[in-house]
């Protein structure tokens, strides 16, 4: 019974937070935090993914990320230029953000022990790992994309590193600040209560 209960909660939470992640991209637009119209933006869409990753572990994070990519594709806002680039940029890039959940149990234990410094550190490491993996995906997709469309022999790797870096670094910093503030406001939520 317990198992089933938390499975339904898992489904509904991941779904609602995917919607929220998608929405936050739009909110970022309203707040005019969006500066990269041609793909990539300083967005806080990673925050709900991190949240699910710490609350439900890697599985929750990966699933939320994957669904966010799928949602962008289904709603027609994904910029897909080639199959490989589309798959990397939307499905893999957001999914790997969920690997932040590797540190889920450490974060939860630290919250249980009420050691704020400790969980903040783990949250930061997790967020960094997730963002770094996503950055890597965008860089690779940039190289793939230009490999297909640009003439051979251009230093595309450097260009891709720089272009993607200009939005991924601020995204990481802002997302990290926000996730810590949100989690400090409701640390109890990070631990899935045992249902009886």
């Amino acid at each position: 019974m317990n198992q089933k209960r938390s499975n339904t909660l898992f489904i509904s939470e991941v779904a609602v937070f995917t919607a929220l992640a998608y929405l936050l991209d739009f909110v970022a637009g309203i707040l005019s935090l969006k500066i990269w119209p041609q793909g990539g933006s300083i967005s806080i869409a990673m925050v709900p993914i991190f949240l699910m990753a710490y609350r439900w572990g890697i599985k929750g994070g990966l699933l939320t990320g994957f669904l966010l990519g799928l949602l962008q594709f289904i709603l027609g806002f994904a910029q897909i230029y080639t199959i490989v680039q589309g798959i990397i940029d939307y499905f893999i890039a957001f999914t790997v953000v969920g690997f932040a959940g590797i540190f889920a149990s450490q974060v939860r234990n630290a919250i249980d022990e009420q050691k704020k410094g400790k969980w903040v550190a783990y949250v930061l490491i997790g967020a960094f790992l997730g963002s770094a993996l996503r950055y890597l995906c965008h860089v690779v997709s940039g190289i793939v994309f230009f490999g297909e469309y640009a003439p051979k022999g251009q230093p595309v790797a450097v260009y891709s590193l720089l272009y993607n870096g200009t939005f991924m670094l601020p995204s990481f910093i802002i997302s990290a600040i926000i996730i810590i503030l949100v989690m400090s406001a409701m640390p109890k939520k990070m631990v899935v209560q045992k249902m009886r």
């Binding site: 339904t8 509904s12 936050l24 939520k189």
Partner: peptide
Amino acid sequence: AVIPLLIPLFVSSFKRAEELAVAME
């Protein structure tokens, strides 16, 4: 300015998700 917007939003999302799970079951 985003923080006082996001925190209530996250809290209410958790609440909605939980209500939905209860309703589904």
